[in-house]
Design a protein around this nucleic acid. Structure first.
Lengths: 133, 133
DNA sequence: TTCCCTCCACGAAGCCTTTCGTATATGATG
DNA sequence: CATCATATACGAAAGGCTTCGTGGAGGGAA
């Protein structure tokens, strides 16, 4: 039995996002993507991926000499954990309070609000149907 | 001119929540609240409050010998910063993606969903009126 | 005044995260 | 086989967070 991986740190999350975007990747590939933006040494990326492997945040294929890393869990799972954690730490455990802040115009763009409304519409419709039957 | 205070760390947020709940408080009072739950040494709380004062996260009244600490910013401001930060780090900058995760049943309770729907209803109504005129 | 209790200030230790330099192994090339 | 480029592994340093021990100052009680 294996416990779920811990929450990723700041830097780990940066790498995870690359792996989620690209799918399984070598260290060099991940480094190339990051080099475009934040700049990080090659061995730094390598070390971090090794640590993440130790934590169970990523899995890797070692059959070829150049290992291929992949995220161990889908983005939704990690994102849900992060949201849950933030709700717990900063919003007294209430998802409602968090959403309220997320909907403030300083945070959500016009497009965000439109899409969120559509989301809620769908949610309400599905629930209404469920209630009728 | 003074820059806004940085994002609070985990431990700092714990103390901030006490100050937001209680209003201005002495070290001893904050410590008493935390002692009920997480258990933290008195000097630990003191030291952390001092650091937070240095960072501008809290203000303090030093007129009496026992200083009185208060949060420097209202909870909404910090919460908005935290949400924005998380959206940036984990959701590719899209508030919509975050709200989607927050609305998942594993995160939001039935009460949360009800209240969020009411929130959206109000938001839509206000916007509809604005559109008509 | 003297004693004692409470409070703040300071410093240091332990831990984690992040970064990178260096050493070692592997495979291709001549 | 010797050489070179590239990959991984290892270790250490720097910085930040959290914790607490100790020292010294202040104010009330005897």
């Amino acid at each position: 039995m294996q416990r779920p991986p811990p929450l990723p740190t700041e830097g780990e999350l940066r790498l995870l996002r690359v792996l989620w975007d690209r799918g399984p990747s070598t260290v060099r590939e991940v480094h190339a993507v990051l080099g475009a933006t934040g700049e990080s040494g090659y061995t730094t990326v390598l070390k971090l991926l090794q640590i993440m492997h130790g934590k169970g945040l990523v899995i890797r294929d070692e059959t070829s000499r150049t290992h291929v890393y992949a995220a161990a869990v889908p983005p939704e799972t990690t994102q849900r954990q992060l949201v849950t954690d933030l709700i717990e730490r900063a919003f007294g455990g209430s998802a409602h309070n968090l959403v309220m802040q997320a909907l403030s115009p300083q945070v959500a763009s016009r497009e965000d609000l439109d899409r969120i409304r559509a989301l809620i519409d769908g949610l309400e419709r599905r629930e209404a149907e469920g209630t009728e039957r």
